[in-house]
Design a protein around this nucleic acid. Sequence first.
DNA 1: TAACCTCGCCAC
DNA 2: AAACGTGGCGAGGTTA
Length: 343
Amino acid sequence: SAVFGQVNLNSPSQVKQALQAKGVKCDSTGQEVLKPLAGKYPQIASLLSYRKYAAMLKKLDELKNVHPVTGRIHPKFDPLNAYTGRFSCSKPNLQNIPRDENVGVDESIRACFVPQEGFQFVLADYSQAELRIAAEISQDRLMIKVFKSGQDLHQLTASRVLEKPIDQITSSERQCAKALNFGLIYGMGSSGLAAYASSQFGVPMTETEADRYREKFFDTYRGVRTWHDKEKLNPHREELRTRSGRLIHFAGKGFTQRLNTPVQSLAADLIKVALAILVRKLEQREARIICMIHDEVVVESKKSITGEIEAIVKAAMLQAGEGLLTHVPLEVDISVADSWAGK
DNA sequence: TAACCTCGCCAC
DNA sequence: AAACGTGGCGAGGTTA
Ligand SMILES: Nc1nc2c(ncn2[C@H]2C[C@H](O)[C@@H](COP(=O)(O)OP(=O)(O)OP(=O)(O)O)O2)c(=O)[nH]1
Ligand SMILES: [Mn+2]
Ligand SMILES: [Mn+2]
């Protein structure tokens, strides 16, 4: 094309050079930068589309090593690799399998993950996991109240940003709002907020508008602002002790990391406690934990006992909160399905 | 050739 | 890309 003559589209440096040669000023060629330019340059839209499909094909390629005997994929789960105490997963990573709405064609990668004959999946995921924990850690009065009354903050934020009634928020709009909520509580700035809203949410937002939105957010959740201010005051604390007793080396960590680490760590501890409870309860039953994705558990359960297993999984995940959280209630979204796509 | 880095993108 | 964070992976590109 006129913009990309003889360039390797897989090479960010060549792409950047080609764009700059055409007078497109950019530092990076990532989505945040290119997406707002896609309307003006159809070639950029094509490039982003190509990158998306290429990423999907790469993911599929990673999933080729099915064990000949078990018919399963056996990744490595490492409980002690991530800084915050999250599990990591590799070879292949099953914690970043594309969600169906992002695959780009009417196909599902997650639907390829199915239980063995005569079994079903129980899929259980903490609702608004780290928002609840942030409410607990910051002791924000309103946020705690919101969770006690069973409201949905992701949905609420989507509704505010899109200026649409709450009952008209689609699941993918809610999904987009997650990054806004977490961005805000973990210290995202006005420029980051504006860029994200424009590129991922499709809502053009100037930096001034972003700044106004941030202020509104922190006026609403005053305890979150106080938490941030407090964290700004002691930027040199070198140790963090988690509620479960782990000591985390904190030296050299910046403001945003200091906000995130206690929350993500507690979330990691929460699900680990839940898994420990659960693995024992499942021992004598025909059901096994086959995957975990940070705040989600996938259990493969014999069909005839799925109802009982569902109750056990939910109870274990809620019970884990009893020793770790004091003010905020937990909720678990749970479903039974014949594939990871959720039926 | 292999090891390493950066970039971009997937998930939570 | 920037004061959101935590990860893994492939491809290009560089270095040993
Ligand atoms: N800092 C940060 N953390 C994220 C982001 N996306 C997900 N997480 C973390 C915080 C979430 O609570 C946690 C689990 O992700 P989920 O997709 O299950 O979202 P969440 O539990 O908040 O909402 P849900 O009610 O399950 O749809 O992972 C993000 O964009 N930034
Ligand atoms: Mn969740
Ligand atoms: Mn989840």
